[in-house]
Amino acid sequence: MDGNALLQRRQVAVYAVAVLLAVVVGLGRPTAAPTLERLIDPVLALLLYVTFLEVPFVRFRRAFRNRRFVAAALGLNFLVVPVVVWALTRLLPAEPALLVGVFMVLLTPCIDYVITFTGLAGGDAEQVTATTPALLLAQLLALPLYLWLFVGPAVATAVEPRPFVEAFLLIIALPLALAWLTEAWADRSRRGASWQAAMGWLPVPMLAATLFVVIASQLPRVQDSIGRIVSVVPVYVAFLLVMPPIARFVGVRLGLPVGERRALVFTSVTRNSLVVLPLALALPAVYQLVPAVVVTQTLVELAGMVALTRVVPRWVVPDGER
Results as ranks from 00 to 15, higher is better:
residue 78 F to N: 06
residue 155 V to N: 05
residue 179 A to V: 04
residue 77 N to C: 08
residue 146 Y to D: 03
residue 138 A to G: 02
residue 94 A to R: 10
residue 191 R to Y: 06
residue 281 L to K: 14
residue 29 R to L: 14
residue 292 A to T: 03
residue 34 P to H: 02
residue 311 V to I: 15
residue 118 T to F: 06
residue 225 S to D: 14
residue 135 L to I: 07
residue 90 R to N: 03
residue 53 L to Q: 09
residue 226 I to V: 15
residue 73 A to Y: 05
residue 75 G to L: 07
residue 23 V to A: 15
residue 170 L to G: 01
residue 135 L to N: 13
residue 139 Q to C: 05
residue 180 W to D: 03
residue 8 Q to I: 01
residue 239 F to K: 04
residue 301 E to H: 09
residue 103 F to L: 02
residue 230 V to S: 13
residue 50 V to S: 07
residue 172 I to R: 00
residue 43 V to P: 04
residue 265 V to Y: 10
residue 101 G to A: 03
residue 98 L to T: 07
residue 239 F to C: 02
residue 203 P to K: 10
residue 282 A to H: 04
residue 241 L to C: 13
residue 49 Y to G: 08
residue 80 V to I: 15
residue 194 S to I: 02
residue 70 V to Q: 13
residue 188 R to E: 13
residue 127 Q to P: 01
residue 229 I to P: 10
residue 143 L to N: 03
residue 29 R to K: 04
residue 262 R to T: 10
residue 288 Q to T: 08
residue 70 V to C: 00
residue 291 P to D: 09
residue 106 L to A: 09
residue 179 A to W: 01
residue 88 L to I: 06
residue 309 T to W: 13
residue 144 P to C: 00
residue 194 S to E: 15
residue 173 A to F: 07
residue 281 L to E: 15
residue 281 L to G: 01
residue 262 R to H: 07
residue 201 W to G: 09
residue 76 L to V: 14
residue 206 M to K: 02
residue 139 Q to R: 03
residue 206 M to E: 10
residue 75 G to Y: 10
residue 163 P to D: 09
residue 179 A to Q: 01
residue 46 L to I: 08
residue 250 V to R: 07
residue 57 F to S: 09
residue 277 L to C: 04
residue 188 R to T: 11
residue 265 V to E: 10
residue 133 P to R: 06
residue 294 V to C: 08
residue 144 P to V: 09
residue 302 L to S: 05
residue 276 V to K: 01
residue 197 A to S: 14
residue 63 A to F: 11
residue 231 S to W: 11
residue 277 L to N: 05
residue 268 S to F: 09
residue 180 W to P: 00
residue 87 A to T: 08
residue 140 L to D: 00
residue 225 S to H: 14
residue 244 P to K: 07
residue 265 V to W: 10
residue 188 R to L: 12
residue 91 L to A: 15
residue 264 L to R: 06
residue 7 L to D: 05
residue 193 A to G: 11
residue 285 A to V: 08
residue 269 V to S: 13
residue 67 R to C: 05
residue 314 R to Q: 13
residue 253 R to I: 03
residue 168 F to M: 05
residue 131 T to A: 15
residue 218 Q to P: 08
residue 209 A to I: 09
residue 290 V to M: 12
residue 89 T to K: 00
